[in-house]
């Protein structure tokens, strides 16, 4: 069985909390562990923050999240139609930040990589960026419960 969910919201910092809680709520029926929940929330928060600060450079726009659950695997796509990334490889280097003046740690992509099983970044300058992540949850939706 496939279960899908999409949300579109404004790229403003007040929505960071909403975005991570919405994705976390979507997976609750799979009974994820506390740790898995925290991993997902952190990864979503990093990707959404990137859209706001880097994709739209704090000027606003829309952020698109699409989630799919299939066979106990959560697939998350987080997309902006912002400025895009010239050099994706460089952007993904640990500790690299294009905006040191904002006191960013440069660990956004590293955290996404560490907390999820797969991470893929597609970007076209002046078109936007899509981050695709996936994570296998311990309690897959194919596991039958006792009762």
């Amino acid at each position: 069985m496939i279960n899908e969910m999409s949300i579109i919201f404004d790229a403003i910092s007040t929505n960071e909390g909403f975005a991570r809680v919405a994705v976390a709520a979507f997976v609750t029926h799979l009974n994820p562990t506390v740790e898995e929940m925290a991993d997902i929330k952190t990864a979503v928060s990093e990707a959404v923050t990137n859209c706001i600060i880097h994709g739209y450079e704090n000027r606003g726009g829309k952020i698109y999240i699409h989630c799919t659950i299939e066979n106990g695997v959560l697939y998350i796509e987080i997309k902006d139609k912002g400025v895009g990334i010239e050099d994706v490889e460089k952007a993904m280097e640990p500790l690299y930040t294009s905006k040191p003046e904002l006191e960013r740690s440069g660990m956004g992509f590293s955290f996404m990589e560490a907390f999820m099983d797969e991470l893929e970044v597609e970007s076209t300058p002046s078109k936007g960026t899509t981050v695709k992540m996936q994570k296998k949850l311990q309690c897959g939706d194919w596991i039958l419960t006792e009762d």
Partner: peptide, 13 residues
């Protein structure tokens, strides 16, 4: 209860 890399930025700064 929740902290992402922004919190790391606060502490490093």
């Amino acid at each position: 209860k929740f902290m992402d890399s922004s919190g790391v930025g606060i502490i490093i700064g």
